[in-house]
Design a protein around this nucleic acid. Structure first.
Lengths: 224, 224
DNA sequence: GCGCCAGGTCACAGGACTGTGACAAATAGG
DNA sequence: CCTATTTGTCACAGTCCTGTGACCTGGCGC
């Protein structure tokens, strides 16, 4: 996922973190010293840096300060000491987060993702089902990369179906959820709307991949 | 310094943190429940939120998720539990940081500043979208180098739209964010204001490049 | 194979939404 | 106090959407 720069002098800790983060899907480059790390930042521009504080030569906090002068990339400091003063010094040196060892790889991963997510800022409120991509923030739907125009009611119905993937939703429920409950239960309203959506998102509307009819019950959205 | 929203149900902890953060130069509003906090986010738009995880009613993680749906502001979760799993759940709910109580006020302050610093560096004062340049520091807008005069309300609305690039914002939300919520929900106010902005910044107001109408939902600002 | 019934399809008129210009109330500045 | 600017409201028109009823199709039980 992300290009991570890891600096840790203890070989076994370094190997352990490198393996764990790689398993989480990150691309990791690890070094034992701050000098190497700074060179890496200059030449390779990683997306995020994880620095041990206790390093031979230049210590982690100082590496952090120097990276800050080079690049605004996010930095996580890693330390065996949990002393409050260290935290303050570290964060004031420009670090974005401060994690105390020993750290659960899952926790480190979660913190990395939280920082990267914030950085992206474009909230990826996106759902992907095969070729179908639904962006709930932008209220955009696209199929195989091409944007599809859905009308408000169609979009509301699709979102309602997608909210319960794999579940059969009956017409009464959908009428209440998508329309006002002022409509008669017995009408072709839901069917007609489903049909309009299918015409737009199903490659073969007669043999639907996304919205399935469950005879006698209602409709089910399920990923292909 | 920053408008901080603090949610903590224990009165003594709440008072302590409020005092400490105020002393650090922050402007703090404190609540005991998540419901009040959500209302505050809707109406007052704080710069950062600090949420206790253990709350009566809606818990902190859930408050975090709901805030995320409203606004991209940074969130720090506060907890007495240091369980690793909690950290992961919290960060995946959209929190930016996770702090274990008891916390030194200096540490909390350092983390707040680290997050705000990161936010500032990630979102500079001057935003450029094609020909459109918005200077949030000087409160000036220019199009293709020529300065455009926007009235205060127009500017507030444009900034609100720009704060959530690519996101559809509905009229109710915009009414609350840009105007006071004293107005009736059903009015052409937003439409008229959007139309005035378009007349000033859109080369062809009838075929807008920046502010798009999403029929039935609201408006979306997206770079051309 | 037949009849029944749930669901699919379609066209269209009425309705919902939005854009737009005009206008008056509110506000600020001189 | 007067004037210019800003802002909220309204009416109207055009566009797009949508609910509806009629009719068609296909699956299913017998």
């Amino acid at each position: 996922m992300a290009g991570i720069l890891l600096v840790e002098d203890d070989p076994s800790v370094r190997a352990g973190l490198e393996l764990a983060l790689t398993r989480q899907g990150h691309s990791v480059t690890a070094y034992a010293t701050g000098e190497e790390a700074l060179e890496h930042v200059r030449s390779r521009r990683p997306e995020i840096a994880i620095l041990d504080v206790m390093l031979p030569g230049i210590d982690g906090v100082e590496v952090c300060r120097r990276i800050r002068r080079l690049d605004p990339l996010p930095i996580i400091l890693l330390t065996a000491r949990g002393d409050d003063l260290d935290v303050v010094v570290g964060l004031e040196a420009g670090a974005d987060d401060y994690v105390v060892k020993p750290v659960e790889p899952r926790v480190l991963d979660a913190r990395i993702r939280a920082i990267l997510r914030r950085l992206e800022s474009a909230s990826p409120d996106r759902l992907t089902f095969g070729d179908l991509v639904i962006d709930r923030g932008a209220l955009k739907v696209s199929l195989a990369g091409k944007e599809i125009h859905l009308t408000p009611t169609e979009l509301r119905l699709l979102l309602e179906l997608v909210r319960h993937p794999g579940q059969v939703l009956n017409r009464r429920y959908l009428l209440r959820a998508v329309w006002d409950h002022t409509h008669v239960a017995d009408s072709r309203l839901v069917d007609a709307c489903v049909q309009r959506i299918r015409a737009k998102i199903e490659p073969v509307p007669a043999d639907p991949v996304y919205i399935h009819t469950v005879r006698g019950f209602g409709y089910r959205f399920s990923p292909p």
